[in-house]
Design a binder for these strands. Structure first.
Lengths: 185, 185
DNA sequence: GGACCTATTTATAATTG
DNA sequence: TCAATTATAAATAGGTC
């Protein structure tokens, strides 16, 4: 805090980052960026996308829309059972289990998607509201200052209801919402 | 020449592009952009990357760094035995895909969450609320990070309803927000 | 690791040729 | 259809906490 150093982006050259820490940070940031861009591509154009990223000496990451395997199958051009050649002997059952599990989770994902689509109308209104007001303070302050009593009461009641709901959140296991992201188990 | 119309980038909705021509143009541009980003990621961090993109009603496109395409084909499995050139790499990618698949759905959940955030600006809304309503910062901020989906959904709906009410404000009397504080009746 | 900030660089939607 | 332009929106490197 004592020193105010120069921030902001600097031009970057397309070369391997030698510093290990910087490389790791860049990997995480850019990996998410690529996935995000891929998600936009798939959503906006309806294309199927599958991505595999394998950092050196760490666990692989993937992105799939709707999922990697089907995208690969399309790429190859045919549906086929699990290959007997490269995987292990019991791979068949592993695949079956994995696919069944994927189906179930995909159902949940699809319902999520449906909810998202269903809510698009309301959300677009919110976006319009957002764009019309630049300042963070103004966003809330402006309209509320001009509310009448009944509207203010509704707001208050709504906030109270929300408070109760939020405070009494359950202890459901499995997927959860943490730090702005949904996490498995 | 005589007319100077407004060009420039507009904000973009994360939704399917209905116009076929625009969709096609966007697909080509963004596909190349994703590949470019992936190449930067691979080059700068040394990670291995494979991407497959299947547009609707057209042939697939792929990107690989260094040589993922062949490996993907091997993973899906041709009937004939794999090329004797690189069996070790084949196994490596089989493992890679298998492990990656388990993370894939979670990744897509996060992508969906990004989409929700984009449409609703939920997090920024919450931040704004926190800043505007200092006295109620804690009850809102704390539990939200631990919410499960249905509760987050309720919160979203509640916010939407509230905002719709707030949007259509009247001008009667003094309940509201002044000098950074909520004025209770 | 993650969240947030900011000066810049990039990406890109709409448009023109 | 494709390449260039351009005004903006978005991404992001480097930093702080």
């Amino acid at each position: 805090m004592s020193t105010r150093l120069i921030k902001g982006r600097k031009s970057v050259r397309l070369a391997r980052i030698e510093n290990q820490n910087n490389r790791q940070v860049t990997f995480s940031k850019r990996r998410n960026s690529v996935f995000k861009k891929a998600n936009e591509l798939a959503t906006m154009t309806g294309a199927e996308v599958g991505i595999i990223v394998c950092p050196q000496g760490s666990k692989p990451y993937s992105f799939g829309h709707p999922n990697v395997n089907e995208t690969i199958n399309k790429y190859v051009g045919e549906e086929r059972p699990p290959s007997p050649s490269s995987p292990g002997i019991d791979d068949k059952y592993v695949q079956m289990f994995r696919k069944a599990n994927s189906r179930e989770l995909n159902t949940r994902l699809n319902s999520l998607q449906d909810q998202l689509d269903f809510e698009l109308n309301l959300k677009s209104k919110l976006k319009q509201m957002n764009k019309s007001v630049e300042s963070q303070q103004e966003w809330f302050k402006g309209p509320i200052e001009k509310m009448n009593y009944s509207e203010a009461s509704m707001l208050k009641k709504g906030l109270e209801d929300l408070l109760l709901k939020v405070k009494n959140y359950g202890t459901e296991r499995g997927y959860g919402y943490e730090n702005g992201k949904w996490k498995a188990e």
